[in-house]
Design a protein around this nucleic acid. Structure first.
Length: 477
DNA sequence: AAAAAAG
């Protein structure tokens, strides 16, 4: 199967091939033909399996190569960073044709964006606030839009965004082509979505037996009741074979604190959250993508859609709010057929929250089970260097920090280690270290369950399943 | 309740 087989125009096939993207993912083979024919689609596929091109190629193709000015395509996304990324992906796909892509988002000067609109861009990717802002000022005309896509659609139809989305739909023509994409589509959201669509077809590019999470992500849960999480995270970050790592915190403040803490210890971390200005946010993302920083500490602003190569670890410093957020966070790794590890710390306050997530995703009983745990089904061991495990597992803060208690070899203590890192600092940042700690090697508790995200979905256990997307080469998500 | 999204 090729993109040509899917009737994608040769110039876009060539543009993708130049980036090494030659074989379509399942969500692409399933949605592209229908999307090209104008069918409204709710497209659901797991994280990192090519949704962006799934909608990007057909919408670009449907408006044709006519370079005459006017916005014909509108893609709406929930965060500024995702806006930049999706625009870049569409630019790549359309690089051999005359149509132009512009990203419209807040925190930035109006100037450049308005100029590109005036220059006649046909494809707009934007966040709701700035889109409505410019539309209100008559600087953005949505009256000729033919194609509307909500990326991360369940988020866009969430309470925080819904009224903005309604306003946007009021401004685009009633006769249009509408598509919604996300890895998660709760039933109530699907019902709501129909208000904005015409006889949509719901496509799930997942095997019903396969469950919600990516088979190539290993999920690891860690009891953090009496641990100094920063200390433990620092140790995990020293593990061999780690590539890039994304650490999620619940609050902006926690992210700011952790980035400082880790950099003090000699790590090469950047932070992204809403308390930073847009320039700082973009600089952090660019440094992380380029490998100049190999650790990204983020709030949920980076939970969805962000596609960075060679992220081998996701660490949940704090348990996310719900199972969909867990899925999106974990999905920053294990993309495009690669493997990854998602580590979650659960402390007393988060026990209930974690239990709900665990149940919803049917994570089952992670392996291997810790026998000492009072809730054995919730916790598993951690892939960190031998010799540190036993201590890290349950050591109280004092013991972990005390020099005598610290495991010898592999943990010279964070200060000592930081010098080591500094020495090879240039290398360690740039290189995606060897292999991740082989998530495929042992019992990844691959959840089962059906119909992505729908609350009361049947649960089934299907462990150790390993299914890769048909094509390994595409790198889009 | 937090985060995000206009300024």
């Amino acid at each position: 199967m090729t993109f040509t087989d899917l009737s994608i125009d040769q110039d876009m096939v060539d543009a993708l091939a130049a980036k090494g993207i030659v074989e379509p993912f399942p969500i692409q083979t399933q949605t592209i033909p229908l999307a090209l024919s104008g069918q409204d689609i709710i497209g659901q596929a797991k994280t990192g399996t090519g949704k962006t091109l799934g909608f990007g190629l057909p919408i670009a193709q449907r408006i044709g190569v006519d370079p005459s000015p006017g916005v014909k395509v509108l893609v709406v996304v929930p965060t500024r960073e995702l806006c930049v990324q999706v625009a870049e992906d569409l630019e790549v796909a359309t690089s051999n044709r005359a149509t132009k892509v512009v990203s419209i988002y807040g925190g930035k000067a109006y100037e450049g964006q308005v100029e590109q609109l005036k220059a006649g861009a046909q494809i707009v990717v934007g966040t709701p606030g700035r889109l409505l802002d410019l539309a209100g000022q008559r600087l953005l005309n949505l009256k000729e839009v033919q194609e509307v896509v909500l990326d991360e659609a369940d988020k866009m139809l969430d309470l925080g965004f819904l009224s903005d989305i309604e306003k946007i739909f009021q401004q685009v023509p009633a006769t249009r082509h509408t598509m919604l994409f996300s890895a998660t589509m709760p039933g109530p959201i699907v019902a709501l979505a129909r208000r904005f669509m015409t006889r949509p077809i719901h496509i799930r590019a997942t095997d019903p037996d396969e469950g919600l999470t990516q088979a190539n992500i290993k999920h690891v849960v860690y009891r953090a009741h009496s641990l100094d999480k920063d200390e433990v995270i620092a140790r995990i970050l020293q593990a061999e074979g780690r590539g890039k790592t994304v650490i999620f915190t619940r609050t902006k403040r926690a992210a700011a604190k952790l980035v400082e803490e880790l950099n003090d210890r000699g790590f090469n971390a950047a932070a992204v959250h809403g308390d930073l200005n847009q320039e700082q946010r973009e600089r952090a993302m660019a440094a992380f993508k380029a490998g100049k920083k190999d650790i990204l500490i983020a709030t949920d602003v980076a939970a969805r859609g962000i596609d960075v190569n060679d992220v081998t670890h996701v660490i949940n410093h704090t348990v996310p709010d719900d199972h969909d957020t867990y899925l999106h966070r974990a999905g920053r790794t294990g993309r495009a057929g690669k493997t990854g590890i998602a580590v979650t710390f659960v402390d007393w306050a988060d026990m209930h929250k974690w239990a709900l997530i665990n149940r919803a995703l049917d994570m089952g009983q992670p392996e291997p089970v810790e026998t000492y745990s009072s809730s054995p089904h919730l916790f598993t061991d951690l892939d960190i260097p031998a010799g540190t495990k036993g201590r890290l597992r349950s050591a109280p803060k004092a013991a972990v920090e005390g020099g005598a208690a610290a495991p010898r070899e592999r943990n010279p203590g964070s200060r000592g280690r930081s010098r080591t890192r500094d020495d090879d600092g240039g290398r360690s940042s740039g290189r995606p270290a060897a292999a991740p700690a082989t998530p495929e090697a042992d019992g990844a508790a691959t959840p089962a369950g059906d119909s992505g995200g729908e609350g009361g979905a049947p649960r089934r256990r299907s462990r150790n399943r390993r299914r890769r997307p048909a094509g390994d080469s595409p790198s889009q998500a």
